[in-house]
């Protein structure tokens, strides 16, 4: 399944940057992530206060508040108006998109291990597993050096570590903290919420991990724009590897 780009291929501008499974799962994830983000914000607006521990409501002191108006008149926000309630469709779509994300993620992770995609393309090479290598990549980015030809075909060590964190830490955490808020899921696996320090802690962590994923999204898109939007988009849609001669387009 894994198509490797030989030097000859890339010199002729041929070969596959990303396999079809990676491309399809990537874009399904993008669509479901955006749906989760928009509906997540809608749900958040109905109670823009966060707590720690098991319980929390408008009568208990919050850990922190988001300074926005609410879609409920019962929440003390400091604003004199109340936004329209959008939680009906937002909650339906949030959980539907979560199913799509979860199932797509499972396909991707099983594929990644089965084809050794993670081992080959994501896990940092032995030579790169040093702070010096990481510093080198960061310094190069800070100097805004143009990405060279090899970076159109392979990930550098900072990318690899970041992608592994997103796939194996942030996404599992956001799913776990989300499920921990379900009373029925709690009845099946009480430890899912107890380990997180309680229901309100789970909700607060769900928010923090979501914010981290959004930060990743911003940096990810910014890097793609800087590295060459057209060539990176081509790599992730048609799968065609960048012709080295057009790297700097």
């Amino acid at each position: 399944m894994l198509t490797r780009v030989t030097p000859a291929d890339s010199l002729q501008g041929r070969g596959t940057r990303h396999t079809v499974t990676v491309r399809v799962t990537h874009w399904i994830t993008v669509v479901s992530f955006i749906a989760l983000l928009v509906t997540g914000i809608e749900i958040l607006i109905s109670h823009p206060r966060f707590y720690w521990g098991e319980v929390g409501n408008s009568l208990t002191p919050p850990l922190f508040k988001i300074p926005i108006p609410s879609s409920r008149s019962t929440v003390p926000t400091g604003y004199t108006y109340v936004l329209p309630d959008q939680n009906g469709w937002s909650r339906y779509l949030h959980f539907e998109a979560a199913w799509v994300l979860l199932l797509t993620g499972l396909v991707y992770v099983v594929y990644g291990f089965y084809t050794r995609h993670f081992g080959r393309n994501m896990f940092p090479d032995r030579a790169d597993r040093t702070w010096a290598a990481i510093r080198h990549v960061i310094a190069k980015h800070l100097r805004l050096t143009r990405s060279d030809e090899t970076e159109g075909r392979s990930y550098n060590v900072v990318q690899r570590v970041t992608y592994l964190l997103v796939v194996f830490v942030l996404f599992p955490l956001v799913i776990w903290t989300g499920l921990a808020m379900s009373p029925a899921f709690n009845s099946a696996l009480p430890w899912s919420v107890i380990l997180l320090g309680g229901r309100q802690s789970a909700r607060t962590l769900h928010f923090i991990v979501s914010v981290s994923l959004v930060l990743f999204l911003f940096i990810h898109v910014a890097m793609i724009v800087l590295a060459g939007f057209a060539s990176r988009m081509r790599g992730m849609t048609t799968g065609i590897a960048t012709d080295p001669r057009s790297v700097d387009e």
Binding site: I43, V55, M181, R199
Partner: peptide, 11 residues
Amino acid sequence: EVVCEEGWSYI
């Protein structure tokens, strides 16, 4: 615990 879909709760 009473768990509201809005996010708040009490026991």
